[in-house]
Design a protein around this nucleic acid. Structure first.
Lengths: 353, 353
DNA sequence: TATAATTTCGTGTACGTTACCGTTAACCAA
DNA sequence: TTGGTTAACGGTAACGTACACGAAATTATA
């Protein structure tokens, strides 16, 4: 009866079998220095054989190690409340992993102001963080920051939009191309052949544009591939004030009669507002994101479909990926595409962002 | 420097402040007997003031308490693999809470055989379980089992379909009515006025029928409420063999030309097979569930839309609800409706069940 | 060869909680 | 008074891991 708890395999059991102390076992487990290759191999072998799984509770209890994560996303503005959702997800994850000794410190920037982005990245760079979650909206500035993190070996997670070809832990967000492609499919269903579709891009910063362009590409390619006879027109509206949008829309809608309008982002509510004010009812409207104002227009039947990509879950899973990587050492999928959800008047009530 | 860890509030600190031993504190914490009302009140007051939160890691490490959950769902059959998904969710949750001292034991029954259901419930009743998750498919038999559990104060979670008006912990699953309603909405979009729609019920056991009837009700009500001019016809096919379904469909389709066929459950793939064999291409087909055979027909474009309600998550959240209730003592929402997801050829690849 | 430097390893304590065993004191009956 | 019962509480050994400290063994240097 040497070991009364012969059922559970722990450091004690391993040490016993390897004829060393638990201190030594501990060293190889946390691959610290100070153990000869020979005994290390022996211990590793036993660990393998017993399929040892460390007790996370005991580990957490004994460890006083703390990790600090930084998050960097756009601040919630009057213009769009889209970023409320990812923030909620981030805070939710933060609450869950708090007990595991992880502190999450959120940073924000103004989507219309590159400088605020740069300021935040340098703040993050100045303090010492163990992991960073960010929405890499400005390409050049993001790449510069990525380099800094790579030098310091700080894992980086992207959400919402990707900057491919750079060394980060993972990307969690939509497959933009596919999401535009799906929208086109819906358009095709609801408006049969020989109809006219207007694509509307509303975005101030050109930097964010590649994001929208990918969607547009998917949208257009669907029609090409399916040999559709639908006619596509596109306008870019580079100012986000209502007056300007109003004017642009009036100009455009005077030119032709469109059957469907596809707005490439969450600004679809602005177009809906315009439709309602001008009593336009026979034009189908499709846009993006589960925002209160959008949902209201969905209820009104002004907006017909919303495409949504679980922004809250993006924030949640982003932080969890850092946690899983750093604490649990599990392998993280490099590209985690969100589902492409179709929201209508009939199912929005049960949608979870 | 009496207490070096003056930062963390634990039993030790509480005991110190209340001038009692930690044993006494432990007794009031786990409201065991053996402590006078006076000291109990004093300790409770301190706990309140310090906002003491027990350390779950220390608790788990020291506690040898075990909980046992039973799950009861249909077994995966050749007829339909639907129940694979909830089972996966159950197993996933089981793996996650295993370390917290919870053992999950799955039971199964044959959807076409009430006796197997009763056998399983009495098995569960015989052993002592601390919580039960079930798909209450047979109404009377389920109610009998509910009574038994209520007597023993065993919390019960329903998934996939509900039996309202009985005392259970919660229901996690679709809002069936709304899901039929949504389907009707889609039908309405893809086939304009004055079209003919065929509703197809394929189900052997009449007991399961109320499940399908609720969907049909939602479906019909949509058309009524929207004053649609579409014409609805319905057939019930009470044998699930292909030959029989084939014959019934042939009979029905001879009667009229339908524009849309709505199948009220996952058997839609059978109809799709029939369509393909008979080269029927101009009829839109809508059905339920993210199953491999259904997805294949979605790819073929034989099926146009699938409605899906996250069966895997139902299993997962069901077990988690038991855990949250019994271990974390958190309050559980009585009705947890799943999102109503619309799956098409373009977004199925990113769907998570 | 002796001594210093370095590597390798063992021991002890702490983490916060649980659960059990022991102790004390109060009470009642004989 | 004594003995017995019981409510009320104290004390403490686990649980499995982390980590600091120091001892021992090995290697390098003089």
């Amino acid at each position: 009866m040497e070991n009364k708890h012969s059922g559970t395999v722990g450091v004690k059991k391993i040490a016993q079998l390897a004829k060393v102390s638990i201190g030594t076992v501990d060293r190889v487990l946390n691959n610290r220095v100070g153990v000869s290759e020979k005994t290390k191999a022996k211990i590793l072998k036993i660990i393998e054989e017993l399929n040892y799984q460390p007790n996370i509770f005991a580990r957490r209890l004994a460890s006083k190690k703390k990790l600090r994560f930084a998050t960097l996303i756009p601040k919630v503005s009057e213009e769009t409340k889209y970023w409320e959702a990812p923030l909620t997800g981030i805070l939710q994850a933060a609450a869950e992993i708090k007990d595991f000794g992880i502190e999450v410190i959120p940073f924000f920037f103004d989507q219309n102001n590159k400088t605020t982005f740069k300021e935040s990245t340098s703040k993050i760079n100045a303090e010492e963080f163990d992991g960073v979650l960010m929405a890499p909206m400005f390409e050049d500035e993001s790449i510069a920051f990525i380099e800094q993190c790579n030098v310091k070996k700080i894992p980086l997670v992207f959400i919402n939009s990707d900057i491919p070809g750079h060394d980060n832990l993972c990307y969690i967000g939509p497959n933009l191309y596919q999401s535009g492609y799906l929208s086109a499919h819906i358009v095709n269903y609801i408006s049969p052949a020989n109809k006219k579709t207007l694509i509307v891009n509303i975005s101030r910063e050109i930097d964010l544009h590649h994001h929208l362009l990918r969607k547009e590409e998917g949208f257009r390619n669907y029609f090409e591939e399916s040999g559709s006879t639908n006619e596509l027109t596109k306008i870019d509206i580079q100012q986000t004030g209502y007056a300007h949008i109003q004017q642009k829309l009036t100009e455009q809608l005077a030119k032709d009669n469109y059957d469907v309008v596809f707005v490439t982002n969450s600004r679809v509510s602005t177009v809906a507002k315009y439709f309602e004010e001008n009593n336009i009812k026979d034009v189908k409207l499709i846009g993006y994101d589960f925002l209160e104002e959008n949902i209201n227009h969905l209820k009104n039947k002004t907006i017909d479909f919303l495409i949504c990509q679980k922004p809250q879950e993006q924030g949640y899973r982003g932080l969890m990926s850092l946690y899983n990587h750093l604490v649990l050492h599990s392998t993280i999928e490099k590209e985690q595409f969100m589902p492409i959800d179709i929201i209508t008047k009939e199912n929005y009530q049960y949608y979870s962002n």
